Amino acid sequence: MEGFNIEDSIRGIWDKLGNWLDAAILGLPNFILAVIVFIIFIIIAKYVGSAFNKIFRKSIKQESIRQMAIKVIKAIIILIGFFFALGLLNLNTVLTSILGAAGVVGLAIGLALQGTLNNTFSGVILSFLPEIQIGDWVETNGFAGSITEINLRNIVIKQSDNNYVIIPNSKIVDEPFKNFSRTPRSRVFIHCGVGYKSDLEMVRDLTIKVLEEHFPQRGNEEVEFMYQEFGDSSINYVARFWTDVTKNRDILIAQNKAIIEIKKAYDAKGINIPFPIRTIDFTNSLSLSNKD
C-alpha cells in the first residue's frame, strides 16, 4: 500500500510499549506502596473489629446486631484504605468516578430500601440504649411483655399469655415505651371505698399501718392515702405504696396481697366496704283503701 511503512509502524509500537514499560517501572514503587497500605488497612480493620467486639459484648446482647456493627466498622476502615491506595497511584480521576458512582448507587438503594434501612438503623440505636435490653418487661405500641430478641429489623416481645409480638424497630424508636425493669422499685396503687358511716381518720390510719407492715418502705418512701370522692355508695380513696417491681406481674402480686390484708383488717374493725345500692323513697302516702 502506497505511503505505508512497516518499519515506522513497528518502531511506533515499540516506542509505545517502551513508554508503558517506563511508566510501569516508575510507578512500581507507588504500586507496591499502595498494596502495602491496603494490606495494612485490612490488618487494622481485623484488630479494630476484634477490639470493638469485646466492647460490644458488654453493651450489645444481640449477636446479629453486634456482628453487623463490627462488619460495618471493618468495611469503613477497608474502604478508607482503598481510597488511600488509589491516591498513591495518582488515580484521582478513577477515585472521583468511583465516589460519584457510589453516591448515585447509594441514593438509589436508600430510596428503594427506605423502610428497611429505617428499621436497621433503629435496631442499631436500640442496641446501644441502656433503657431497653433483652429480658426487660416493657409496654409499647399497645403491647406488654418481656423482650426476648432485638435484631436489625424488629424486637420480639413475649406477652403474659405466652404469645409473641413482633414490632418493627422504628415503631419502638418513634413511639414512647414504658420499661418496668429499669427501676427495681415502683409505686403500686390500691383503689377502694368505705361506707359513709365509717370513721374516715381511723380508716386512713389503719390502711396505712397495714400497708407499712406488709410492704416496708425504704429511705424517703412512704405510704400515701388520699380520699378522692363521694361515690354513690361509698367514700372512695386511693392508697399508694412502694414495693419491688420489675414486671407487670409483680404489680398484680402486690395488689393481691394488699387487698387481702386490708380486707382482713377492715373485717376485724367492722369497717364496711359497701357495694352499690339504690334506695327508693316514696314521698307520697298511698292507701289501697282510699277509693279516691
Score class of each variant (00 low, 15 high):
Gly3Asp: 00
Ala265His: 04
Asp292Met: 12
Asn163Leu: 13
Phe38Ser: 14
Asp136Arg: 10
Gly270Ala: 03
Leu99Gln: 09
Tyr47Gln: 01
Glu175Met: 07
Arg278Met: 12
Phe230Arg: 14
Ile98Ala: 07
Ser233Met: 04
Arg185Tyr: 05
Asn53Ile: 12
Lys54Gly: 15
Lys58Val: 11
Asn163Trp: 12
Asn53Arg: 14
Pro168Ile: 05
Asp22Trp: 15
Gln255Ser: 07
Phe82Ser: 05
Glu229Thr: 09
Ser127Tyr: 07
Gly12Thr: 11
Asn90Cys: 07
Ile273Phe: 03
Glu7His: 13
Tyr237Cys: 08
Gln114Phe: 13
Leu86Asp: 05
Glu222Val: 02
Ser289Leu: 07
Leu286Tyr: 01
Ile132Glu: 02
Ile76Thr: 04
Leu33Pro: 00
Ile167Ser: 01
Asp199Tyr: 03
Arg153Ile: 10
Ile208Glu: 06
Ile125Thr: 15
Leu88Ser: 00
Pro168His: 07
Asn30Cys: 10
Thr116Ser: 14
Ile167Cys: 03
Ile150Val: 13
Tyr196Met: 00
Lys16Trp: 06
Asn220Ile: 05
Thr116Lys: 14
Asn5Glu: 11
Lys263Met: 08
Pro276Arg: 11
Val138Gln: 00
Ile77Asn: 01
Phe230Trp: 12
Asp281Phe: 15
Gln159Ala: 13
Phe143Asn: 12
Lys209Tyr: 08
Gly123Trp: 08
Asn163Lys: 06
Ala144Tyr: 10
Phe38Leu: 14
Ser186Asn: 05
Lys263Tyr: 04
Ile13Gln: 12
Asn92Leu: 03
Ile155Met: 02
Leu152Pro: 04
Gly135Ser: 09
Ser160Ala: 15
Trp137Gly: 05
Arg204Val: 00
Gln133Gly: 03
Phe83Val: 08
Ile109Gly: 14
Ile77Tyr: 02
Phe189Cys: 01
Ile167Met: 06
Ile280Lys: 14
Asp267Met: 08
Asn162Thr: 08
Asn272Gln: 15
Arg182Ala: 03
Gly270Met: 05
Gly219Lys: 12
Thr120Cys: 09
Val210Trp: 02
Glu149Leu: 13
Trp242Gln: 07
Pro176Ser: 01
Phe128Tyr: 13
Ala45Met: 09
Val203Ser: 00
Ile6Tyr: 15
Ala254Gln: 01
Ile78Ser: 07
Pro216Trp: 08
Leu111Lys: 09
Ile78Cys: 08
Leu286Asn: 04
Ile280Leu: 14
His191Glu: 11
Ile36Met: 01
Val188Pro: 03
Met226Asp: 14
Ser181Lys: 05
Asn141Asp: 04
Asn179Cys: 02
Glu229Pro: 12
Ile157Met: 10
Leu113Phe: 13
Glu131Trp: 14
Asn220His: 02
Phe128Val: 08
Ala75Phe: 11
Lys54Val: 15
Thr243Pro: 04
Pro29Thr: 06
Ile10Pro: 07
Ser181Met: 01
Ser97Ile: 15
Gln62Asn: 07
Glu224Thr: 10
Asp199Ile: 01
Asp174Gln: 12
Asp22His: 15
Asp22Leu: 15
Ile235Val: 04
Glu7Ser: 14
Pro29Ile: 07
Ile80Ala: 09
Val203Ala: 00
Phe230Asn: 12
Ile271Tyr: 04
Trp242Asp: 07
